[in-house]
């Protein structure tokens, strides 16, 4: 069966407002999305802002980096790390992050929300 998903792109912020090589939290309705600009790699990522370990709204404030070639974020609370690309926990836990697609157009950063997220 082929599933079709409609992706809604919503404008999150201006590129120039984002910190370099770090994250910021974006409000989308009642939910919070952590947006990351990995300037060194010229990459953008978005994940849920809540760390699933202790359910704290903090991932956007975490340090980012790489493990091998996997881009990752470390939660400020207990330094659990998660892949920015897949959301998988890299610290041996079973929990994982929801990730969102990101695109940049005309100086704006857009985060893609599929209809299941609505």
């Amino acid at each position: 069966m082929i599933e079709t998903k409609t992706i809604t792109w919503f404008p999150a912020c201006l590129v120039k407002d984002m910190p370099e090589n770090g994250g910021a939290c974006v409000r989308y309705g009642d939910s919070q999305i952590a947006l990351f600009h990995f300037t060194r790699r010229n990459e953008w990522y978005a994940t849920q802002n809540e760390c699933p370990h202790r359910r704290q709204m903090a991932l956007s404030r975490g340090m980012i980096g790489t493990s091998g070639d996997v881009p990752k974020v470390a939660c400020p609370f207990h330094k659990k790390t998660f892949s920015l690309a897949t959301g998988e926990c890299l610290s041996g836990d079973e929990c994982s992050l929801k990730t969102y697609p990101v695109k940049v157009e005309n100086g704006w950063v857009y985060i893609g929300i599929d209809d299941e997220d609505e």
């Binding site: 090589n21 990995f38 060194r40 790699r41 975490g62 340090m63 980096g65 790489t66 493990s67 070639d69 881009p71 990752k72 470390a74 330094k79 790390t81």
Partner: peptide, 19 residues
């Protein structure tokens, strides 16, 4: 940090070397 990483490091850093 970026100068140090470019000059003496490899890859893109992490939560251990940054602090």
């Amino acid at each position: 940090y970026d100068e140090v990483l470019d000059r003496f490091g490899k890859g893109d850093g992490c939560e251990i070397c940054k602090p």
